[in-house]
């Protein structure tokens, strides 16, 4: 069991999350991909904390989980607002700034 196992797994999950954020059109699925990326970051923090025997990383992991919960709340509010105004949850409909 080595630290780099966890780091590489987190890197893979983070990259898959990036792919999801870029390719998904539906707002809810974009939020799910962001959750995937935040989860990878938490994995990194906990792995560093446990393998270096320092409790700071665990405290930071708790902060990341809290902020992820806050982010999903506000993000869902935004997706609901987009759905209500544009009649579609697809965020590529948000092109009013196009000249």
């Amino acid at each position: 069991m080595q630290l780099s196992y966890y780091l590489i797994l987190a890197a893979i999950l983070f990259s898959i999350g990036i792919y999801g954020v870029i390719t998904r059109k539906n707002g809810i699925l974009v939020l799910m991909s962001i959750e995937l990326m935040l989860n990878a970051v938490t994995l990194n923090l906990v792995a560093f904390a446990q393998f270096n025997q320092s409790p700071e990383g665990l405290a930071f992991a708790l902060f990341v989980i809290t902020i992820a919960a806050a982010e999903i709340g506000v993000g869902l509010g935004l997706v609901l607002l987009i759905t209500r105004n544009l009649k579609s949850p697809n965020i590529d409909k948000l092109d009013q700034l196009k000249g």
Binding site: E35, T42, A61, L62, T66, A69, I72
Partner: peptide
């Protein structure tokens, strides 16, 4: 952290996401 993950992510965040799927 494991049980916080189960409670907050699997419990709260996923219910919120499913509500979002329903409401949109």
């Amino acid at each position: 952290i494991a049980w916080v993950q189960v409670l907050i992510y699997i419990g709260a965040v996923m219910v919120l996401l499913l509500f979002g799927i329903m409401l949109t």
